[in-house]
């Protein structure tokens, strides 16, 4: 247990240390979201309809940014070897890395989504539900993305490969997340779409670390 906590603490510290830059994906997310009114114009009804779905797409792409170096850096620097020597199972360590990423990057993106949703003409009362949905969806993105990051850890410039590997797994949370956000905008925040979003997240939480650990063991040998 202390091994899992130690890795979680280290990765969380790294997420916000100078040079690693969790600020970059959050900035990307806000920047992409704020380009939307520039491209479709400031018409309230149109923005209100597509604002929340665009936030989901921006959040998914911002999550992709952090996956490329997630395991690659550890593999190159010898840090992965040390994880393999830990008494904690590699599955749990992979989960700790994703959890640190969720707290360090996923939650800030979800928090930034609340003001961004209001700026994109979502009803202010729904902003909290939209942010909550994104916080849950970010966990699905990052735990599913863990698998792509692990599988491509030894590939140089793996960004595109990781995107191809994990984008299909981003489809269910986007599908249900955007539907939940639309329901929230209409004043019914915790309907079936929201529950299905939670379901896809649980699926990613359960299977992502196991698949990622299997891929990492292949990389080490």
């Amino acid at each position: 247990m202390s091994a899992i906590l130690a890795l979680f603490r280290r990765d969380l510290a790294l997420a916000w240390s100078a040079g690693s830059g969790a600020a970059a994906p959050v900035g990307f997310f806000l920047g992409a979201a704020m380009l939307l009114p520039l491209s479709v114009g400031a018409e309230r009804t149109l923005l209100g309809a597509i604002g929340a779905p665009i936030l989901w797409i921006a959040a998914a792409l911002a999550s992709l940014m952090v996956l490329e170096r997630l395991f690659q850096a550890d593999l190159e620097e010898g840090g992965l070897d040390q994880m393999l020597l830990s008494p904690a199972p590699l599955e749990a360590l992979a989960a700790a890395k994703a959890a640190a990423l969720w707290v360090g990057v996923g939650l800030p993106i979800a928090a930034a989504a609340a003001p961004a949703a209001i700026a994109l003409q979502a009803p202010p009362a729904a902003a909290g539900a939209i942010a909550l949905g994104l916080a849950i969806g970010e966990a699905a993105f990052l735990f599913a993305g863990l698998v792509g990051a692990a599988a491509a850890a030894s590939v140089k410039r793996a960004g595109v490969l990781i995107a191809l590997l994990v984008l299909p797994f981003f489809a269910p949370p986007i599908l249900f997340g955007a539907a939940a956000a639309a329901a929230a905008a209409e004043g019914a925040p915790f309907g079936p779409a929201f529950l299905l979003l939670c379901g896809t997240t649980l699926f990613a939480l359960a299977l992502g670390p196991i698949a990622a650990a299997a891929a990492l063991r292949l990389q080490a040998t």
Partner: peptide, 14 residues
Amino acid sequence: LHVIGHGDGLKGGL
């Protein structure tokens, strides 16, 4: 086991 290998396993920002 302890392994001291080519990579020191360090993170520059830590």
